[in-house]
Design a protein around this nucleic acid. Structure first.
Lengths: 342, 342
DNA sequence: TTGACGGATGTAACTAGTTTCATTCACTCT
DNA sequence: AGAGTGAATGAAACTAGTTACATCCGTCAA
């Protein structure tokens, strides 16, 4: 019942090695300034006491914690996982670590988790989209904390944005279908009430091509949601000759459902997505879609955030190019669509 | 050129509010013990100085940083993203945050990044699989750091493992095909030299069903890799009637390639995967596969790690059930396979 | 009136490191 | 021999908080 050994600290090591704390510190941070023999003695003491320096104590002196936080709606969708992959890789090259928190697309949860990240010492934050609570802005302004928003672009936004033009992405898809002659198009999208990117895409379509009739289907943002939409499209709308999905995940579900029902894509119905997931290119038929550069976005976000954290330079907003990938799932309107002359 | 205002600290706040540091600290941690008027004064001072408490200084006293690290091979594969999704969600309920680092399946990079995570104060680590360097073990033993391994199971391993039986998973797939009468099966797998889980699966197949001929194809672990394997299978092996992919990602690629070549699945060739990705159920035909409970694994890992960190209790290894999901991509050997009577 | 009690607050010692500014001492140069 | 030089080391101050303990003051009971 003597000395309940708590974790050894630098003073213990110094005592064991019969040197001062300064010398032990030097062995850690500038070994070349310590005499060979002394250093060996100190290192042995470290070994024996199983000493590891305390990150917190180090951080308190440097004022740096060397990590930033990322707030994303979910990790279950490929998109965000790929953003984070790029982000992590690039942050690592700046010797920064990445803390991840998910928000379920709920700004209140986002604010809470942001508070949590700040509590543990995040030096900067990355958030998704442009829907945030006043509490969130309060937090970051209070601490004058570097924070950037991704997946969107608006040079006038309160935070520097790094992303693509959601309006342009949706319109590119619509233009492609309209140019091929489609005049009645089903639009399949995820929940719009809690996601500003989805909302931006939907709003971009209204009136953009007045000659086209648009029929909207809101479903959960998942393959199953896409399946449901596929069924709805198949059974309901007669003259619908094309389906525009505002996400490739939804497009996969729609495609599955159409194939199951024996409807030819693009023979009877054309299908286009937005995202360009890694698998989209290898669906059968290959999915026509709008490529969003999420991986590059992760890299760019990392550089922007790292730069801000390291040098106090607020980064410029940055617009990344999107690209229409015309593949095999779209074509001119088919002659027959279930009932030949509805 | 006066007082370059560095970030305010608690002493500054105390001075501004004309109270002692203890009182300011109390306003943060036990507001009810401070008189209303005093508290208001202190809070106003905090506001004015835009003060946020330093996480490091707090951590140095509590000895807690409240975050753990996860080392995964990559974020680009759905599998790990889903593990992390479960992990993050469950850690959050223990009020712990998650730092993510990727290793590219390289144990040396893993050791480096583990060092980095420890440097910034991780209270525990999660790693994938059972291939780790002595340096890695040195690190965690030095700091007596909680660490668990996932995606594998071995109660005798140096770290507590939480995962599934890779041997059983591979064998379940092989059994399914063999039981249906397939006698010549192409096995498609990712790089085996740097991934012990893949290796375990491959080794599990050898001699497990002696009546079956196995032909191995090693390709990159990606859809493109699967496509390459699909071509190889199609052109090379004559009597091959089934393809066993040790990952659903590969299976998607194989399926794409077979469909493109007009080969009926499962009519001419049966196809089975391992993983059960969210999309696998909605490929056409629906992919038969072995379900690995990655999301539950994330939850279980979070509970194990949180328990260890909070209460110093080393968790029990835990084996999670796998399940063969028989869907539409497998069936008895087809009568014709390219050349009728090779 | 005086002692006891308790709420509000302050002092100073902690936490675990880094860093500045001496100081010591061996060695070289004049 | 005495001064100058530079490497090696140590004492103490510093980082930004928490907290044990002391103190002050007003109220209430004896």
């Amino acid at each position: 019942m003597k000395a309940q050994r708590k974790r050894a600290n630098l003073r213990d090591v110094a005592a064991a090695a019969q040197v001062s704390v300064a010398t032990v510190s030097r062995v850690m941070n500038a070994p070349e300034t310590v005499a060979e023999k002394t250093r060996a003695r100190v290192e042995q003491a470290m070994q024996e006491l199983r000493w590891l320096p305390s990150a917190a104590a180090r951080a308190i002196n440097s004022g740096r914690t060397r990590f930033v936080g990322a707030l994303v709606p979910t990790l279950e969708h490929d998109i965000f996982a790929r953003v984070l992959a790029g982000l992590e890789r690039q942050l690592a090259s700046h010797r920064l670590s990445l803390v991840v928190a998910t928000t379920d697309d709920d700004p209140r949860i986002e604010a809470e988790k942001a508070q949590g990240l700040i509590d543990i010492g995040a030096e900067g934050l990355m958030v998704s989209g442009m829907t945030h609570t006043p509490e969130f802005f309060g937090l970051i302004e209070r601490g004058q904390l570097p924070a950037i928003a991704i997946s969107c672009f608006d040079p006038d936004y309160r935070l520097p944005t790094i992303g693509y033009d959601n309006t342009a992405a949706a319109r590119a898809a619509l233009d492609h279908l309209a140019d091929q002659g489609h005049r009645r198009i089903a639009v399949v999208h995820g929940p719009s009430n809690l996601n500003d990117r989805t909302r931006a895409r939907i709003e971009a379509l209204a009136g953009h091509r007045p000659e086209v009739d648009l029929v909207y289907h809101e479903v959960p943002l998942s393959i199953a949601g896409g399946c449901a939409a596929g069924q709805a499209v198949r059974t309901a709308a007669a003259r619908t000759s094309a389906v525009l999905c505002l996400s490739d995940v939804l497009a996969s579900g729609v495609l599955f459902e159409l194939q199951r029902a024996g409807i030819a894509v693009p023979g009877q119905i054309s299908l286009i997505g937005v995202d360009d997931l890694p698998g989209s290119e290898h669906l059968y038929p290959e999915l026509t879609t709008v490529h969003l550069p999420v991986s590059r976005m992760g890299l760019a976000a990392a550089d922007a955030l790292a730069g801000w954290v390291e040098t106090q330079t607020v980064p410029q907003p940055r617009l990344l190019e999107i690209e229409l990938m015309v593949r095999a799932s779209t074509g001119p309107p088919g002659r027959l669509n279930g009932q030949p002359a509805a």
